[in-house]
Nucleic acid binder design. Structure first.
Length: 199
DNA sequence: GTAGTGATTTTCT
DNA sequence: GAAAATCACTACA
């Protein structure tokens, strides 16, 4: 306990900012999820921003739909969608209420609750299995549509600020999209080995 | 080691 | 009916 070790839950005001300000700030923060079986904590190392304007890759680019409705709501909530018939992706809603914007969580390092994670092939080789990818991450956490539109200032799913400053932030184009690739809105911690590997 | 493709279902046109 | 903010497996060098 040398320095300040105050751990604070990120307030709604943290999310109520432009997406491109929130996204890099998320690196080095900790994601806490209280599952039915216990508590999981992971350090965020890779995210992508999806903006309300000038972003054809954003789900909200074509207006409000049933799926992207949480993005149009108030900030500080979760937005989870199902894709490719088998994977879920977790986002944090940003911007003001009524303005669609979100940050996709792409990769994290588990620091607590590793034994609670769900892995492919029935849970073999759980050691050192990286949460490198949005689909993997949600599967490991057991996230599904049941956790969609949760309040991130609540107790079930939230982020902690542990005041880490040893994050080397880099940015690059986003991954897995076909339009809007020219926007470098992916942010990651260059010190982490859990970030998505380039193809 | 890299490259290519099947899986599988929700959502929107 | 087609596409989707992905992953893991298979084939081949």
């Amino acid at each position: 306990m040398s320095k300040r070790e105050t751990i604070t839950k990120l307030p709604q005001a943290f999310y109520a900012r432009p997406t491109l300000e929130v996204a890099p700030d998320l690196l080095g923060k900790y994601l806490i999820y209280k599952a039915a079986t216990g508590r999981i904590a992971a350090r965020i190392v890779e995210v992508e921003g999806y903006l309300p304007v000038d972003d054809p890759a954003c789900h909200a680019a074509r207006g409000l739909t049933r799926r992207n409705r949480p993005m149009f709501g108030p900030p500080g909530r979760s937005y989870i969608y199902f894709i490719y018939g088998m994977y879920h992706c977790l986002n944090f809603v940003t911007e003001q209420d009524g303005t669609p914007g979100a940050v996709l969580l792409r990769a994290a390092e588990v620091v607590a609750g590793r034994e609670l994670l769900v892995f492919p092939r029935g849970g073999k080789r759980t050691d050192r299995y990286p949460l490198s990818g949005p689909g993997k991450l949600c599967r490991a956490f057991g996230l599904s549509m049941d956790q969609n539109d949760l309040d991130l200032t609540g107790d079930r799913l939230y982020l902690e600020d542990r005041h880490e400053n040893d994050v080397t932030i880099k940015q690059s184009p986003r991954i897995g999209i076909k339009v809007g690739v020219d926007h470098p809105w992916r942010f990651y911690d260059a010190n982490s080995s859990a970030v998505t590997r380039p193809r």
